[in-house]
Simulated assay, not measured.
Amino acid sequence: MDIQTIETKSERLLVIVEDDAILSRTLGRSFERRGYKVLLASNLEDLEVVLHQHKPDYAVVDLKLNDNASGLDCIKKLHARHDGMLIVVLTGFASIGTAVEAIKLGACHYLAKPSNTDDIEAAFGHVAGQTLNVTERQTTSIKTLEWEHIHDVLAQTGFNVSEAARRLGMHRRTLARKIEKKRIQ
Rank of each mutant, 00 (worst) to 15 (best):
A41T: 07
L44W: 03
L44K: 09
E45A: 15
D46G: 03
D46I: 00
D46F: 02
E48P: 00
E48A: 04
E48N: 07
V49H: 12
V50Q: 09
L51Y: 04
L51N: 02
H52G: 14
H52E: 14
Q53D: 15
Q53C: 12
H54D: 05
K55V: 06
Y58I: 09
A59N: 06
D62A: 09
N66C: 07
A69K: 15
S70P: 14
G71R: 05
G71S: 11
L72T: 00
L72C: 00
D73H: 01
D73F: 00
C74E: 02
C74G: 00
I75H: 00
K76T: 13
K76C: 01
K77V: 09
L78Q: 05
H79A: 05
H79F: 10
A80R: 09
R81M: 08
R81T: 12
H82C: 02
G84S: 15
G84Y: 07
M85H: 06
L86E: 13
I87P: 11
V88T: 12
T91Q: 03
F93A: 02
S95W: 08
I96G: 03
A99Y: 05
V100N: 04
V100L: 11
A102R: 01
I103W: 04
I103A: 02
K104V: 07
L105V: 06
G106Y: 01
C108V: 15
C108H: 09
H109P: 02
L111H: 06
P114S: 02
D118I: 04
D119V: 05
I120N: 04
I120G: 10
E121V: 11
E121G: 03
A122K: 07
A122Y: 03
A122Q: 13
A122M: 14
A123Y: 08
A123D: 13
A123K: 01
F124M: 12
F124Y: 14
F124I: 09
F124G: 10
A128K: 13
A128E: 14
Q130T: 14
T131F: 13
T131N: 12
N133V: 06
V134S: 13
V134H: 12
E136A: 13
R137L: 09
T139C: 08
S141K: 04
S141C: 11
I142W: 08
K143C: 11
T144C: 05
L145T: 07
L145E: 09
E146H: 02
E148L: 12
E148S: 06
H149F: 14
V153L: 04
T157M: 06
T157Q: 11
T157N: 02
T157R: 11
N160F: 03
V161T: 10
V161H: 01
E163T: 04
R166M: 13
R167D: 04
L168G: 04
L168C: 09
H171W: 03
R173E: 13
T174P: 04
T174L: 07
T174A: 11
